[in-house]
Design a binder for these strands. Structure first.
Lengths: 109, 109
DNA sequence: ATAATATCTGAGCATATACTCAGGTATTCA
DNA sequence: TGAATACCTGAGTATATGCTCAGATATTAT
């Protein structure tokens, strides 16, 4: 079955220009690392500071910090500095949606 | 130091275990390249053979072939060989959904 | 003030990636 | 058969990526 919604969506996607393709690739690339996936999965549960994230994902705080810069630049997370700690949260509901769609593919693939 | 608690907590990750995190990352990485994004955007509109894809994305047929191998392995595309041509289609409706969610983020981010 | 804590940053290194090039395989047609 | 076409493959190369390490910055505590 093909719905109007699907046709509309397909049409939009077909009209992807080069700039948007590059941006979309950049977004997916930001999600294309196991450490960052685990960081974001953790943040979906609730905000955490760098130390907590590092403990959770079991990589150094420096490595976390490097990852967070990229995620911030992609507007996937946002910061809330309280005292000397920096709390991160997912910036956007789309992140959880992307994860859900991705998991559906992975689990049914 | 890695404790049992960390391992346990890490394993849960809100329903996302380490193996799934790695698979999810692998999936997103497969989408994390502008050429592949454009290839998939083209295929969402309908099947195309390698030559047509190469012309559309403006990279060599060899480069396309290399990309298609990865996309096939990720089960993002499917092949239909007719004569000496190989027609590719997107394997899964989730691909278009992922693109749509990604675009929403990129356009509204 | 100094010390301690939390995070960030840049350099360096090992590995991964995307492409080109040359050649290989499979299929069609003269 | 042989040539032409369509696609695939492996090697090589330039660039990108993820991590560690050492140290910088910012904030809090003594």
């Amino acid at each position: 079955m093909t719905t109007i919604k699907q046709i509309t969506r397909t049409t939009q996607l077909g009209g992807l220009d080069e700039r948007e393709a590059a941006q979309l690739a950049e977004l997916f690339r930001a999600l294309g690392d196991a450490s960052r996936v685990r960081i974001l999965a953790a943040l979906i549960q609730g905000e955490q500071n760098v130390g907590a994230i590092a403990a959770h994902v079991d990589i150094s705080e420096s490595a976390v910090s490097h990852h967070m810069r990229g995620l911030r630049q992609m507007r996937l997370v946002r910061t809330d500095k309280r005292g000397r700690e920096v709390y991160y949260t997912v910036d956007d509901a789309h992140v959880a949606e992307l994860f859900q769609r991705g998991l559906e593919h992975v689990r049914h693939g």
